[in-house]
Design a protein around this nucleic acid. Sequence first.
DNA 1: TTACACATACCGACTGGTTAGTCTGTCCCG
DNA 2: CGGGACAGACTAACCAGTCGGTATGTGTAA
Lengths: 197, 197
Amino acid sequence: MPRTTDGDGTPVPQRLLAAATRLFAEQGYDRTSVQEIVEAAGVTKGALYHYFGSKDDLLHEVYARVLRLQQERLDTFANADEPVEKRLRDAAADVVVTTIENLDDAMIFFRSMHHLSPEKNKQVRAERRRYHERFRALIEEGQKAGVFSTATPADLVVDYHFGSVHHLSTWYRPDGPLGPQEVADHLADLLLRALRP
Amino acid sequence: MPRTTDGDGTPVPQRLLAAATRLFAEQGYDRTSVQEIVEAAGVTKGALYHYFGSKDDLLHEVYARVLRLQQERLDTFANADEPVEKRLRDAAADVVVTTIENLDDAMIFFRSMHHLSPEKNKQVRAERRRYHERFRALIEEGQKAGVFSTATPADLVVDYHFGSVHHLSTWYRPDGPLGPQEVADHLADLLLRALRP
DNA sequence: TTACACATACCGACTGGTTAGTCTGTCCCG
DNA sequence: CGGGACAGACTAACCAGTCGGTATGTGTAA
């Protein structure tokens, strides 16, 4: 029997990633020692450095996972066979829901970018830009079609919306009065209302 | 002659605070060593610990300064003798301008909250809430007066706007195409448009 | 079927480097 | 001459990453 799943059934690399995600979100990247991570995952340093090249690598994995997920979802909504208003609203609301459902990831994402090595940072920024562009294209499409106001540059509108998404990890509490879908509907509403011609 | 102003004319405590602000924004709190700060300020550790109790204290001072400034400005705009739409627009635009003009402060503010000691963190949160409440009151006033839509709870609207303010330090570049006032006008526009009944 | 080689999956003591904060002492001013 | 304003060496703690070692499974050849 390989030790890869010793104890519970989850493979060691995933246990490490999960522990790191939680600890990075709770205490920040720099305040979390590798020792804490391996203890939380029930292994030792040997295991961590067997699967990951560095502590930095672990952080990078978190980013890769989030980016992949969000890009996939955006593409699905953006390419749907629906009027552009609905596609934008659905995409805008969805990113809110998935962000709330992975608040730890979101916290890390926006708070720890600068802890990545310059090289990995660049890579993440590039992927992030792709996401941004796709979202912007959606808005520009609506503007050209005349269903969205052109008063504000599409770029700024995207940053406006993602600012609020970013901010979620600061104020949203699962035990608060609003569920993820409710918040998402409200925020998508605000976006669409701001875009009314 | 006291050494307090040795070299240039700026007093040592302020030189330290300025150096710390810049370095915290550039590299993050944890990645900035006390040694770097004192070197940048042209003094030694003795001087720093003569004026500040800890590295944490230095960070706290940055927060206190930002909060004081923003609260003052908000109060001025919110209590002006103008219709509520104008007061909200002015306040919303002003916070964008002052944030852009102090991007370093903003960067630190939103990225380093969790580095403060629990006690100081609580204090900052409390002051921040006061600010938030004042802003919310403005929106609720407009909603009651019927000039703003009541479709979205005022709380959420505030978070929506401050999310975008928060986000500024991530994407705004002084050498970009838009000046501070232009960005502020656009963002205030988006807020007011979203609030149209 | 057994025996041996080899790889994978880890363990945990150790190292080299860094850091916040302390403390003793010096210098100048009133 | 007393005290505020520093200087700078020192300490105690911590931490990322390394490395030699061990255990377990797998392929293969006699």
